[in-house]
Each structure stands twice: as structure tokens, then as C-alpha cells.
């Protein structure tokens, strides 16, 4: 029995069926099938949401072991575990018991913890950006000169005081936006679509290994 369940053909078959279920009614419409496909897509979202505890399990495996072994910096692991478990409990969707996303403590932790941290982390980009610009923007040859030129002209346009004094930056930026930027975005988008289609072919034929068989056979 278990050797039968283990067969790789089962997941490949599931992949193909689910894929065709989404694609076919899009081109060949048949209402019951289309409704079923819509339902299946929602159903799949439930399956994805069920995986949520994998994160916690992995976290406990890594940080629990840290704490147990008292390895270097284990106290940080304690902090992580306590925060994870307490926020998960406070956020349980049980408003009947004063828990959930509209409860006082959830909003307290959300606004002062989650919001502060994610904004702070995101805003660090400004610094990385500045040092990146300073180090990488060198006109070493024609190509890097083009990156530099386009980049610096755009920066000039984006500075309110500069463009207020020298309005022609707006025109230059318009050209950059409408010509090379448009062309690049369009071409890369088309190419990425082709890549995704071919990847689908490989997956449907069962020759794409990465995701399904641990890269082996």
C-alpha cells in the first residue's frame, strides 16, 4: 500500500488535473466546470492556509534547540518563541473570548510592534540605496554611464526643489519613462511570460524536478 501511495505519478497526476481544471473552462466555457474551477481555487487557498503551523514547528525546532543547548545567543531565541506564541494566541480568531484582530492587545502589539518594525525595516532601504548609488554608480564605460545618466536625471526630477527651478528635467524624465523604460518593461514581461509557459510544459510533462522530488528521482 505504502509503496503505491509513494509513487511519484500520483502528485504528477494531481498537478495535471488541477492545472487543466483552471485552464480549460477559461477557453471552452461550460458553466458547471467554470464554477467548479472557481471553487477549487478557493479550496486550494484553504489548503495553503492550513500549512501555517509549519512555520511555528520549524521555528520551535530551530530556536527550541538553541534554548535547550544553551548555544550562543539562546536568550534571543527565548524572546522569539515567547513573542511568536503570545501573538498567535492573542490573535486567535475568537472575538467571543476577547481575542482576535480587533482586540485591544492585538492592536497594541500590531501598532507598536509589527507596524513599527516593518516600517523601520522597509525604511532602511533609503540607506542601502544611498550607499549603493555611491558605490555602484560609476561611469566606467558607456553602459554604466547610461545607467548613471538615466538614474541621476530621474533623481533630479524627483527632487521637488530642483524640478521647480529647472522644469526641463520633467521632459527628460518623460522621455526616459516612455521610451527605454517602457521598452524594457514590455520586453522583460513578454520574456517572463514565455518562461512561465515553458516551465508549465516542463512541469506538466513531469521533467521539472526541483519542486516535486526533492531534485532527485
Amino acid at each position: 500500500m505504502s509503496s503505491l501511495l509513494k509513487r511519484i505519478e500520483i502528485p504528477i497526476f494531481l498537478t495535471i488535473v488541477c492545472c487543466l481544471l483552471q485552464v480549460v473552462p477559461y477557453y471552452f466555457y461550460w458553466k458547471p466546470l467554470d464554477d467548479f474551477a472557481t471553487r477549487e481555487a478557493q479550496w486550494m487557498n484553504l489548503i495553503v492556509a492550513t500549512a501555517t503551523f509549519i512555520g511555528l514547528i520549524s521555528l520551535v525546532q530551530v530556536h527550541g534547540a538553541n534554548v535547550q543547548k544553551r548555544s550562543k545567543g539562546w536568550y534571543f531565541s527565548v524572546v522569539t518563541l515567547v513573542c511568536a506564541v503570545s501573538f498567535a494566541i492573542i490573535g486567535l480568531p475568537l472575538p467571543e473570548y476577547g481575542l482576535g484582530s480587533l482586540s485591544y492587545w492585538y492592536l497594541f502589539l500590531y501598532n507598536n510592534g509589527q507596524v513599527a518594525l516593518s516600517q523601520a525595516q522597509f525604511s532602511l532601504l533609503a540607506f542601502f540605496m544611498t550607499s549603493g548609488v555611491y558605490r555602484a554608480f560609476r561611469a566606467r564605460n558607456l553602459e554604466s554611464g547610461l545607467v548613471l545618466g538615466a538614474g541621476i536625471l530621474t533623481v533630479c526630477y524627483n527632487a521637488p526643489a530642483i524640478v521647480a527651478t529647472y522644469p526641463f528635467f520633467a521632459d527628460i524624465r518623460g522621455l526616459l519613462n516612455d521610451i527605454p523604460n517602457l521598452a524594457l518593461n514590455r520586453a522583460v514581461t513578454i520574456g517572463a511570460a514565455l518562461g512561465a509557459i515553458i516551465l508549465a510544459v516542463r512541469t506538466l510533462l513531469g521533467i521539472e524536478r526541483g519542486y516535486l522530488r526533492g531534485g532527485g528521482d
Partner: peptide, 21 residues
């Protein structure tokens, strides 16, 4: 603040490139 930070970015690019040349 936007303008000042952009001045800074421009300044760094110029310093880096002039020094490089």
C-alpha cells in the same frame, strides 16, 4: 527632506565619479 536627501544622493554620485576619473 526629499529635496535634501536627493541633493545628498546627487552629491555622492558626483564625488564618487569625479574622484574615480
Amino acid at each position: 527632506a526629499i529635496t535634501m536627501s536627493h541633493y545628498l544622493v546627487i552629491a555622492f554620485v558626483i564625488i564618487g565619479n569625479v574622484a574615480y576619473f
